[in-house]
Design a protein around this nucleic acid. Structure first.
Lengths: 169, 169
DNA sequence: TAGATAGTTCGTGTAGCACCAACTATTTAT
DNA sequence: ATAAATAGTTGGTGCTACACGAACTATCTA
């Protein structure tokens, strides 16, 4: 039962169409993409999470490990292992920061940039598969939105949850 | 070393800017969203994965469990547990299909639709946090793209990987 | 000189899955 | 009618990607 019309214009409690959240869809599509990416990346010796790190590093080169932990939102101790992988493969470089010698400045190597490019080529099929319903222009649009969102919350996100908005929800 | 300009217009192997893939960014943002969603959903007795299922169910009501497994791309045996959770909470319903009585037709209950709406409200802060760099109109645009992509690969995706395209990559 | 901070290593725990086996109910093929 | 396939369920094992804690070094700051 209840397969009827979903009363779009309901007035009080029902969430208007505009109340829809991207979160669950983001997770859904990310998972689908993840599954297809794994096999595509294996020949390159990379895991999806490595690609995420490399992608983030391309946009924020010279970040500290702590900064990377903040951006990726994973624990610092796990960043170590992730970077160990990438550095062992010669894709990233850890250099001591001249200003604060406790810090490691992480950056892509030339090989890392190259490998990232190869990986993106290898992901073409996966993307065709998952985003097949979108026209090429729309995919560009999507990429643009994702990238801007990603850069926008580069680091500061972590403690912004205090803002008290009188949301009508 | 090699911090110099990244030779964007390189001619042969280097991936043009247009070769960028959404996959890694999708994963990145999905993770950020996931982390914030967990705490927001706890008071509602839901996990992020439940929200994904409910969201998918809203768009493909009356799907079979196998169909759901295909859409979510998780093993059928795990779908059982997921639906057990949701059914125990009264949010979804399993009815035997009249045409094929082996099948369970899964659909949102009224309570499920309501809870999903509440959850979407609860996710407002998380979304503000993660998609804060996007203007409201852009968020709508993003949602629209994600949803269309999601519906586009509803089920058939699984075995489409055979298409042989002469990609120049 | 003492304490904080960045990174490292090791170790434990957990959630979300995949995957296998065995079973029931039901449908389809022979 | 009987066999084989299919949808779902249950229970179990194992893996991966993390979180989180403890202990340590090097370095910076008070």
């Amino acid at each position: 039962m209840f397969r009827g019309p979903r009363r779009l214009g309901h007035m009080s409690a029902g969430p208007a169409e505009s109340e829809r959240r991207s979160g669950p869809l983001l997770q859904h599509l990310a998972r689908r993409m993840l599954l297809r990416s794994e096999s595509a990346l294996t020949p390159l010796g990379l895991r999806p999470r490595h690609l995420v790190a490399l992608t983030v590093l391309r946009d924020s080169d010279g970040i500290s490990q702590q900064g990377l932990a903040g951006t990726l939102q994973i624990d610092g101790t796990n960043v170590v292992g992730l970077l160990n992988d990438l550095e062992a493969a010669g894709l990233v470089e850890r250099r001591r920061s001249p200003e604060d010698r406790r810090r490691h400045v992480v950056s892509l190597t030339a090989a890392g940039t190259k490998r990232l490019g190869e990986a993106e080529c290898a992901l073409a099929d996966a993307e065709d598969d998952v985003l097949g319903a979108l026209a090429p222009g729309e995919r560009d649009q999507l990429y643009d939105l994702l990238r801007r969102a990603s850069q926008g919350c580069a680091t500061p996100c972590a403690e912004a949850a205090v803002a008290e908005s009188p949301d009508a929800c």
